[in-house]
Amino acid sequence: MRYEAPTTINAAVKLLAGKAGVARVLAGGTDLLVQMRTDRIAPDLVVDVKRIAGMRAIATGAKGFKIGAAVSGAELGEHKALRKAWPGVVEAANLIGPKQIQSRATIAGNVCNASPAADSVPALVAAGASAVIAGTKGKRTVPVETIAVGPGRTSLKKGEIVEAILLPKRPPRSGDAYLRFIPRSEMDIAVVGVGVSLTLDTKGVCTAARVALGAVAERVLLVPEAAKALIGSKIDDDALARLAAAASAACRPIDDKRGTKEFRIKIAGVLAKRAAQAAAARARGK
């Protein structure tokens, strides 16, 4: 195995594009090193992107936030403006593992690892986040939900790297939240995760919403039917019941060591309801 730590994105792309065999990007390494250790992959090349300029920075602009691909969860959690604007995204990112993982794990890595149970992804999808991808043919920007195509599989082409995650500017009277279900209080992989982002009008009626589910399908799902249940409502009990039903209906989970199909379907509804309430409370300024 070869280890490289380039200082420019172009050099990183060139390394990844030029290498025959298995090449992997190393940002936080909290998935990659585990996969290496447990013999799931044996890369021929590892490209550490942490020394590339801008990769560890959070930029705030008129359009929103640009989060470098190597920014750790801990750094996200310490960024006050980001936490204020997108508390659901930050809380989701901060749920990825304990402090030891937070110091390294990145949301770009969480997206690219393409686990259906990735905590930050439902929150990012609900938030309408996109990813800036650098490759041999230049850069492109895509919605986050298009990156994972199945467990461990992405739509990224050879030589492509996620350079940053973009979060839009937060509209007024809006809020987001992410809730996951785990058996313990920490250290588990989500059995179900739900991200909700919504906007209310001055009367408290929901005008826009996005709902995303994790760990209930082969990839994170954006569920427009669930969002529809909220839009036009005051996030009342009826709307929440319809939301829960729509969320459960969208699930196509598997039985595994972490939970049964039946359980996941039911919990998706419960969490969708609770996450929507939390997001609405934030939108109402509570």
Binding site: R184, S185, M187, D188, I189, K257
Partner: peptide, 14 residues
């Protein structure tokens, strides 16, 4: 589940 990730022993926050 041959690992501490999915063999879930109690953690301090539990």
């Amino acid at each position: 589940n041959p690992g501490f990730l999915d063999y879930r022993i109690p953690v301090a926050s539990d």
